[in-house]
Simulated scan of single mutants.
Amino acid sequence: MTITQLYYVLAVAENQNFTKAAEKCFVTQPTLSMQIQKLEDQLDVQIFDRSKKPIELTEVGKKIVNQARNIVNESYRIQDIVDQQKGFIGGEFKLGIIPTIMPTLLPMFLKTFIKKHPKVKLKIEELTTEEIIARLKDGHLDAAIAATPLEDENIKERVLYFEPFVSYTPEGHRLHSNKKIDVSELDINDMLLLEDGHCFRDGVINLCKAFKNHSDDQFQLESGSIETLIRLSNEGLGMTLLPYLHTLEIHEKEKKNLHYFNEPSPAREVSIIYHKSELKMQIIEALQDVIAGIIRGAIAFQNVKIISPLPK
C-alpha cells in the first residue's frame, strides 16, 4: 500500500470517473486504474462499484476513503515540518472567503500579503460557509475566512476581528430620524434580506427578535448581493443591515441613511478557519498577522455583542 495509491483512490472518489481522476493526478488512466486494482487485490475488497454510472464507493470503500484522507493529509505534514524548520513561507495555498466578506476585506490585505510573502501562490475562491466547511474537511481548501463561531469539532478558528452591523434606513422609513437604533426596534417583516445560504442573513434573522412573529403571507424581498439590497432600500422597499466594512465604500449621499446601534453593538465575529490537522500553519499565521495589522486601523468598535452566524 502506498500514499500514491491512496491519493488515486481519493481522486476517483471525488470525480466518480477514472479518466477525470487520472487527468487531475497527471497520470494516464491505465496507470491510475492499475494502481487502484493492485490496492483492491491486496486488501481483497472492492473499493468502487464500477457497474454504477457514475462510479460509486462500496460501503467498505467509504470507510477506506475516510481513512485514506487522514493518511494523505498526515503525509503532507512531513513537508510542513521541513518548511517550518527552514522558516519557509511559500507554495500553493487555497483560501476560501464568504461572499459578504470577500469584496471588502480582500482588497484591503491582498496586495500587502503578496508583497510581504511573494513565494506564496494564493488561490482564492468565493464560497458559502457550507461549501467552505465541506472543502476544508475533504482537503480542497487550506483555510478560509468566515463568520464564526461555527461549533464544528473538526474546524479550528482564529478570530481576526469583530465587525458591527450597521442599519441602512432610507428617508421615509420609521427609523430614519433616530440618531441610533436599538435592536428591540427591528422587525424582520420590514427587513430586506440576503438570499438563503448567506450566513450574514442568518445573523440578521438571529438578531431580529420579531422573527418569531413572521408570517409567510407578508411581503418579503431577498437578494443575492448587499449592493442590490441598498438599491432596493433606496426605492422605499424596506430597511436592511450592512456589515460595517461595506459602509466604508458607500456613496457620500447615502451615508445619511446609515444608523449605528446602541451599545453593545450587534456584530459578527470574523475568523480565519482551518482543519484540525493544522497543515500549512506558517502561511495561516502569516495571513492572520497581515489581516490583523490592516483591520486594526479600520474597525475601532470595542463594545460589541457577537451574533451567531448559524441558523437557529
Score class of each variant (00 low, 15 high):
4 T>R: 13
4 T>L: 12
6 L>N: 01
6 L>R: 09
8 Y>F: 15
9 V>P: 02
10 L>Q: 02
11 A>D: 05
11 A>N: 09
13 A>K: 12
15 N>P: 03
16 Q>A: 13
20 K>A: 15
25 C>M: 09
26 F>V: 14
28 T>A: 14
29 Q>D: 05
31 T>I: 12
31 T>G: 04
32 L>N: 10
32 L>P: 06
34 M>P: 07
34 M>G: 11
35 Q>S: 11
35 Q>T: 11
35 Q>P: 04
36 I>C: 02
37 Q>I: 10
38 K>M: 05
39 L>R: 07
41 D>W: 15
41 D>T: 15
43 L>Q: 11
45 V>P: 08
45 V>H: 12
46 Q>I: 03
47 I>R: 00
48 F>Y: 06
48 F>A: 06
49 D>F: 10
50 R>W: 08
50 R>E: 13
52 K>A: 12
53 K>P: 10
56 E>H: 13
58 T>L: 10
58 T>C: 05
60 V>Y: 12
60 V>K: 12
63 K>W: 07
65 V>Y: 04
68 A>D: 14
70 N>L: 14
73 N>D: 07
75 S>E: 09
75 S>H: 06
77 R>H: 09
81 I>R: 06
81 I>W: 08
83 D>G: 00
84 Q>R: 11
85 Q>V: 00
87 G>R: 01
90 G>S: 10
91 G>A: 04
92 E>F: 04
92 E>Y: 04
93 F>G: 01
94 K>Y: 14
94 K>I: 09
94 K>W: 14
95 L>N: 05
98 I>G: 01
101 I>H: 02
102 M>T: 05
102 M>N: 11
105 L>Y: 05
106 L>G: 07
107 P>T: 06
108 M>C: 00
109 F>G: 01
109 F>N: 06
110 L>K: 10
112 T>F: 01
112 T>K: 10
113 F>P: 01
113 F>W: 03
114 I>L: 01
115 K>Q: 15
116 K>C: 00
116 K>T: 11
119 K>G: 02
119 K>M: 04
119 K>Y: 04
120 V>K: 02
121 K>V: 11
121 K>I: 13
